[in-house]
Design a protein around this nucleic acid. Structure first.
Lengths: 137, 137
DNA sequence: ATGCGCCCTGCACCTAGGTCCGGAGTCAAG
DNA sequence: CTTGACTCCGGACCTAGGTGCAGGGCGCAT
């Protein structure tokens, strides 16, 4: 089975080596097996894991939240009902994000459309697009 | 016309007073008029603006990107074509975010669904959901 | 068997985004 | 006209998420 050194992994996932070690400390990467020399030996899937982390961050999830997402799948012994509840909570959060993004998008499209007309470009609806009452993630 | 002091604004927008001053320094809040005493006097809409900033942050936009969003609406004198182009670029970015969120959501729902069965809860599809090739926001 | 590049650990340092503090001035209720 | 709450400003400090050394140990091509 093909494996990667930390340097190769870093290259393939487009992150700094130190970042990988940092994720390991934070519990986002499970500690990989080591060679006798102490070198870490990563399976190929580690690349996906890092890419997932990075994209989830860009989507506004903190490292702590991402760790929570992962924790949904380890522990095959956690009660199914519990996992289900947590997964559904995440889904609700994601739905809220999506709909806010949809509203921002609609506002931006309206703005872009207004640009091909003469109307004053001011008076834009961007602000109103997210003016919902405090809901905290 | 009704106005707010910085403290009232902070309370209504659920942020720290210092955060408001910080946003002003960063150019996210336009400098409000001052009383003779030097006190800032905010219009009610300032609340919406702050809420917009906060939610956009939760959605993964940096303060710099948020400032860019705002810059699309000031300057009624920027060429319409330019604004249009920039707005459309933002829309494309938002579309990418939405589709990634949709994929995460699908993965989570699949996971939740698997939980009402006996099958091993491990082997979940979360990782694969965002394992797309490097696209950087 | 040696040199060059990669890996190890621990710790110092960096940026973004805030948050707190102190000393001084302001406002309004009593 | 005083007192407690609020505001001003400048600057120090804090957390999250990394990033960069230094000093030492591998690994392999020559």
């Amino acid at each position: 089975m093909q494996t990667l050194t930390i340097g190769q992994l870093a290259k393939q996932a487009h992150v700094n080596i130190e970042t990988i070690r940092y994720y390991e400390r934070r519990g986002l990467m499970t500690e990989p097996p080591r060679r006798d020399s102490g070198y870490r030996e990563y399976p190929l899937e580690a690349v996906d894991r890092i890419r997932f982390i990075r994209r989830a961050q860009e989507l506004g999830f903190s490292l702590k939240e991402i760790a929570e997402l992962f924790s949904l799948r380890v522990n095959p012994e956690t009660t199914s009902a519990d996992i289900k509840r947590r997964a559904e909570a995440k889904v609700a959060d994601i739905n809220a994000r999506i709909s806010d993004l949809e509203r921002m998008k609609a506002a931006l499209m309206k703005l872009a459309a207004a640009c091909r007309g003469r109307g004053p470009t001011s008076e834009c609806p961007i602000l109103e697009s997210l003016a919902s009452e405090g809901r905290s993630t």
